[in-house]
Amino acid sequence: MASGGQRVTIATIAEAAGVSVPTVSRVLNGRTDVSPETRDKIEMLLREHDYRPRNSRQPLRAGLMDLVFHDLDSPWAVELIRGVEDVTHAAGVGTVVSAVHHRTASARQWLQNLRARASDGVILVVSDGAGPVHSELHRLNVPMVIIDPAGGAAADVPTIGATNWSGGRTATEHLISLGHRRIGLVEGPKSLLCSRARLDGYRAALESVGIRVDRRLIEPGDFRHEGGFAAADRMLEREERPTAIFASSDQMALGVYEAARLRGLRVPEDLSVVGFDDLPEARWSSPPLTTVRQPLADMGALAARTVLRLSRGEAVETPRVELATELVVRESTAPVKPA
């Protein structure tokens, strides 16, 4: 706000930036005919002055909801989209799906598009909600919900996840119950809360029965087939290889399958494997994959319902929601072979 409580106007921003009022208006409307340097300067001033359009305090009813991923090359994303669209379709709201690919330029372009067309709300997937995106959505008064936050989201941003710690523990306990003691873990990206929670659940299960956590049996991964393959390949080349591997995603578990196959190992006779997510491909893999079911479609649906509530000005009682996970036992796990 300007000094004395006066409302900040486009003219105020234009004067501070040393540009014309139409130039500021073009930035606000997402136009591309402004130099990157000028755009960055104006956007910085808009944030600093907490500029809000005159009608920004009124609930937006654009008939559109944005669903924003870092990447879209995963059936995991498809399941979330399915849940979101079930809700938006019933509400007569369109879904705009975008990917920003971890690049600042992509995020900036997406924000420009959003300013140009408006939105009833935004669902960010695997994000910390911090930085310019959060600030700009707040300035535009656009409701935001985060699915699987990377870190600590702001207190005013609802987040939706799953019981990842419990899921990690349950997966590991299942392998322990089959007699496995050398249980490997393929982690997800360390920057994500869900990855760290699955690791902590794995550790808790081992420690609860007096099994020492062996760091040599924990390998980094990236939630992709390639990451699971590389991690399992490193574990299986050791003289004392694991008899079972818990992969923190189904895609990585299928990468473990391939690493085992290339070494002449059979699943589950020589190596038991557990995944996490219960994607459709888990059921159709060979052998069908034992995994921790994460209610992805339900998470997407809840996020969409929360955005719609916020867009109507309704309060959200619980800012952090975790939906229950469930172990699904199929044919990729078996009792450990006698020594």
Rank of each mutant, 00 (worst) to 15 (best):
M44S: 14
S191D: 04
R82N: 02
S25M: 07
R196G: 07
S249W: 11
R266Q: 08
A171G: 10
T9L: 08
A154G: 09
D71Q: 09
S248N: 07
A155D: 14
A204H: 14
I245K: 00
S286L: 02
M1Y: 13
A244T: 07
V267C: 00
E331V: 10
A253F: 07
G255E: 07
R7L: 12
F276P: 04
E314Q: 15
L236P: 03
L46W: 09
G83Y: 11
P53G: 14
T325Y: 14
R320E: 14
A91G: 06
L271E: 03
R196L: 11
V122F: 06
S177Q: 15
A153L: 06
P338Y: 03
Q58T: 04
A91D: 10
G92R: 06
Q112S: 13
I123S: 01
A107C: 05
G210Q: 03
S119W: 03
L28W: 00
M235A: 00
T9D: 01
V126F: 05
E240R: 13
A130R: 13
L80S: 05
T243A: 11
P295F: 01
V186Y: 02
L46K: 09
R139H: 08
V292L: 10
G275M: 09
F223R: 12
A90S: 13
S20C: 01
V336N: 07
E37D: 09
V125R: 07
